Simulated assay, not measured.
Amino acid sequence: MDKFFKFCILLILIFCVNFNKELAVENLCLFRATTGFPCPSCGMTRAYIHALNLDFKNAFKYHPLFPLPLFLFVIIAFRKKVKIFDSIYNNNFLIICLIIIFIGVYVFRFINSFPYEEPFTYNYSSHVYTILEILNLVKNN
């Protein structure tokens, strides 16, 4: 089977799966499970689940940059076959700009949403919070 056919089968399988929009995410992210704080990609999994269910409004709500990793994956995967993708891949200025945008969106979301709005809530069952409770350094809710 050629690679394109395998890729098409994979896409069909992805769209046929019934994704659960209420996915428990507290332990999916190692950063959040450890520190309790949301990471820069917090909400990305739920954004993709909503996007695969064609619910783009909620997908952008969970992470406004959710198309970016897919875009970067396509560029990396096809950089040898498509000349423009190779030039994008080797453009350090563009890569730095994308990193700055990603960090800027994270800071903006952290300031405006933490700790009250999903996906930027604090994980009180995180390892750090549990250790602080054991050491009696935080008040119990």
Rank of each mutant, 00 (worst) to 15 (best):
E118Q: 06
P119G: 03
L98D: 05
I134Y: 10
K57R: 15
F102G: 06
N140S: 03
C8W: 06
L52N: 15
P69W: 09
A33H: 13
C39Q: 00
Y48L: 07
H127M: 12
L72I: 10
T34W: 11
I131T: 04
L11A: 10
I111Y: 09
Y48D: 07
M44R: 07
D2F: 04
G36K: 01
C97A: 15
L10F: 15
P38T: 03
Y122F: 15
K80S: 14
N53A: 08
N91I: 11
S41D: 08
F37Y: 08
A33L: 12
P38C: 05
N20C: 12
Y122D: 06
L94E: 14
P119R: 06
S125C: 05
E26C: 10
C39L: 01
F56W: 09
K3P: 08
A33I: 09
D55P: 01
L28R: 09
G104F: 03
E118R: 07
L94A: 14
K80Q: 08
F108T: 01
L10P: 06
A59N: 05
F114C: 05
Y122T: 07
F37W: 08
N20Q: 09
Y116M: 09
L135H: 04
I14G: 01
I134D: 13
Y48R: 06
I99F: 13
L68K: 03
T34L: 15
L132R: 01
L54V: 10
E22I: 01
C29P: 12
L28Q: 15
Y106M: 03
I96L: 14
F19S: 04
F78T: 03
K6T: 09
K6F: 10
F120T: 03
N92P: 06
I84Y: 08
